[in-house]
Amino acid sequence: MNIRAIAEDEASRISAIIEDLKHLEGPMLPILHEIQATFGFVPESAKQIIATALNLSRAEVHGVITFYHDFRDHPSGRHVLKLCRAEACQSMGGEPLAETLLSRLGIDWHGTTADGAITVEPVFCLGLCAQAPAAMLDGELHARLDEHCLTDIVAEARR
């Protein structure tokens, strides 16, 4: 398949998602979530297609995508590890724990390991403040983390 055909297929799939969901009240977030579920991220090309379909500017769509941390502009790793950055987790050692993990993995926030296994993202509260520090791997919560627990979580994700 050539590049033009890929772009046309992507645009067609994005348009179909929009058509299915634009009848909803406040359709942009459901559309963005479905596009991300389909592609693993929100392609740059989607911004103008969404804007045109919803009678918005491309800047408005871009603003929504960049405001919400859950939307990505590039593919993530096979597993997404979200580390809580809220005050309770920071006060219980979450910040040095995160710095150690990122250093060991050789990435920064929103980065993906070289083997494509893990993307690490910040999140600002997982609701486990009494069990801080906390993380979420592929939707599964982990609490009372220490370096050993986090090492085990990463090792499991890499298998």
Results as ranks from 00 to 15, higher is better:
residue 61 V to W: 07
residue 137 L to M: 15
residue 80 V to D: 01
residue 51 A to G: 08
residue 117 A to F: 05
residue 40 G to E: 09
residue 145 L to A: 11
residue 141 L to M: 08
residue 34 E to M: 01
residue 130 A to C: 04
residue 90 Q to P: 01
residue 105 L to M: 05
residue 52 T to R: 14
residue 16 A to L: 13
residue 36 Q to P: 01
residue 35 I to W: 15
residue 11 A to Y: 04
residue 45 S to N: 04
residue 41 F to Q: 06
residue 53 A to S: 14
residue 97 L to M: 03
residue 7 A to Y: 13
residue 110 H to P: 02
residue 73 D to F: 11
residue 127 G to K: 04
residue 111 G to Q: 00
residue 147 E to D: 15
residue 122 P to I: 06
residue 41 F to K: 09
residue 124 F to C: 10
residue 4 R to L: 15
residue 43 P to W: 06
residue 28 M to H: 01
residue 101 L to N: 00
residue 155 A to W: 02
residue 44 E to K: 13
residue 138 D to K: 13
residue 148 H to R: 13
residue 39 F to P: 08
residue 149 C to R: 15
residue 122 P to S: 03
residue 81 L to A: 02
residue 93 G to V: 00
residue 2 N to E: 10
residue 133 P to N: 05
residue 36 Q to N: 00
residue 77 G to Q: 12
residue 83 L to R: 09
residue 82 K to W: 15
residue 39 F to L: 01
residue 134 A to L: 08
residue 93 G to P: 07
residue 130 A to N: 06
residue 65 I to P: 01
residue 135 A to I: 08
residue 66 T to Q: 03
residue 148 H to K: 14
residue 3 I to Q: 10
residue 49 I to R: 12
residue 123 V to A: 01
residue 16 A to F: 03
residue 114 A to F: 11
residue 147 E to N: 12
residue 130 A to M: 04
residue 22 K to H: 02
residue 70 D to N: 08
residue 18 I to W: 02
residue 137 L to S: 04
residue 28 M to I: 15
residue 3 I to Y: 02
residue 37 A to E: 10
residue 44 E to Q: 14
residue 154 V to D: 05
residue 120 V to N: 01
residue 25 E to D: 10
residue 84 C to P: 02
residue 47 K to H: 13
residue 61 V to F: 07
residue 109 W to K: 08
residue 62 H to L: 10
residue 29 L to S: 11
residue 140 E to T: 14
residue 102 L to I: 03
residue 114 A to M: 09
residue 123 V to Q: 06
residue 128 L to K: 14
residue 148 H to C: 01
residue 115 D to G: 12
residue 55 N to K: 13
residue 44 E to G: 07
residue 47 K to Q: 12
residue 57 S to L: 02
residue 76 S to L: 07
residue 56 L to W: 00
residue 117 A to W: 00
residue 52 T to Y: 02
residue 135 A to V: 07
